[in-house]
Design a protein around this nucleic acid. Structure first.
Lengths: 246, 246
DNA sequence: CGTTACGTTGACAGATTTCAAGCCGGGTGG
DNA sequence: CCACCCGGCTTGAAATCTGTCAACGTAACG
């Protein structure tokens, strides 16, 4: 149930396979992708806005966040990624990065050269479709975040984000029963849902008080999924998990 | 300088060509895509959340908005599209729509069958890349909106949105000097930047009072681009307009 | 001429931010 | 081993922004 130890290729294959079965050749093509593994500590960026990358990164362990700053220095986290995700896959077709990516606490990622991905895609068109789809799901998630931040109040927003996390982590086997590890700071959480850290703290307490979540250190447990879903106005269609989770 | 009269194929070709030159075969493949044209009046949806479309729509005239509703009935517009855009291109790889799309006032769109797009892409892999890129730019824009809505105050938000519009409309030849038509309701505008309609109205007045914009009916003119850019904390990189607009 | 959709205003309530201070636990250096 | 420091978490109170409610103006239109 730990994740860090999984090989990059297994993570990637498993994820793509959740959409459609890969042929042996396709699986082999993924297998053959050269990956350079690196652990990045909190505080450093994995990629920075304005960069013109020649590679993209597959998350192997830990979480990462996609973020941007306003002129005033306020930070918005526009996406959180979990092991198996490729947060900068967009760079395959967009020359310059329009956001930065940083690890939460610390995380290990595998770098894959664009050239290698392109070749694999050329030879196996269904891989193209699979990768394209990945980027589309990311886009769908950011649209939902837009709804969340733009129209829901902070309490609901947080409940919603927790719902999303539970499902996404479950999809990669990182949920144990009804609890999962969420090694993320309240400030980061606040930047993700567009509130101040102070308010974030109060909302968290409210959620706990209402029995929607329980926390122990970085562990979060959700005693009543349906209740949290309702509190978060959560409908998982936007995650496009073919499995059809509740 | 009008747009509505442009043929679907010209619009599409022109847009893709702004990224890289198309070969004659590629251009022909686009030309051969069967398009069914339809005008959709305000109030109806072009596609609805939950649908499983077998086609996607190219905007020919007017604007459209991508939106979702919360359980409380609040609407967030997560994207606005202009002629030449394909707002539901995602449906090519995501079976079920995770948002609805509606015309602003009224607009005419061209429907293209997924099957036809897929065939064109198979035969001309660079078209795949071009379409994929389109969806990536859309995703980039929604990330910027996230920053805008999550971290900037309403005044700045609106200035930012106006900046974006100016550039996007300029890119499709819909800007005359420093003025452009924005046939959009204040309520819609408000739903796009996540404020109430009342507040939207007041911000608009503030922008006018500060000389950042002038309005006459649906026409908006920007007397001082640099000033508006600054007020909106606007940096156009996220639009990925290769031309390198200011 | 009534209806309707949209824009405008004022007053008030509420959600969130900001500022400031205190607390807690873990790590480091003396 | 203990003092100290620092990041992260909590709390309270006041300041602001933004939303809500309600009413009115206005232009387009059948």
């Amino acid at each position: 149930m730990t994740t860090g130890s999984l090989s990059p290729h297994i993570l990637m294959t498993r994820k793509l396979e959740s959409i459609f079965a890969l042929s042996d050749e396709e699986r082999q093509a993924l297998q053959d992708l050269p990956v350079r593994i690196k652990t990045i500590k909190s505080g450093q960026d994995i990629v920075r806005i304005g960069d013109r990358p020649t590679q993209c990164c597959l998350i192997l362990e830990g979480f990462t966040c996609v973020y941007k700053l306003t002129a005033e220095g306020k930070r918005q986290i526009m996406a959180l990624h979990v092991p198996g995700d490729i947060p900068d896959l967009q760079s395959l077709h967009l020359k310059v990065m329009d956001n930065s990516i940083a690890p939460i606490r610390s995380s290990t990622v595998g770098f894959i050269q664009h050239e290698d991905v392109r070749q694999a895609c050329e030879r196996h068109p269904r891989l193209t479709a699979a990768f394209w789809r990945e980027t589309l799901v990311d886009a769908s998630i950011s649209r939902e975040w837009l709804l969340n931040i733009g129209q829901r109040e902070a309490y609901t927003r947080l409940a919603h984000l927790l719902c999303e996390f539970l499902l996404r982590l479950k999809a990669v086997g990182l949920v144990e029963g009804d609890t999962f590890g969420l090694p993320i700071t309240q400030v980061e959480m606040a930047d993700a849902i567009g509130t101040s850290a102070v308010h974030m703290n109060r909302i968290l307490q409210a959620l706990r008080a209402d029995g929607l979540i329980q926390t122990q250190g970085t562990q979060v447990t959700v005693p009543d999924w349906e209740k949290l879903k309702k509190a978060g106005d959560f409908d998982p269609v936007y995650l496009h998990l073919e499995g059809g989770e509740t």
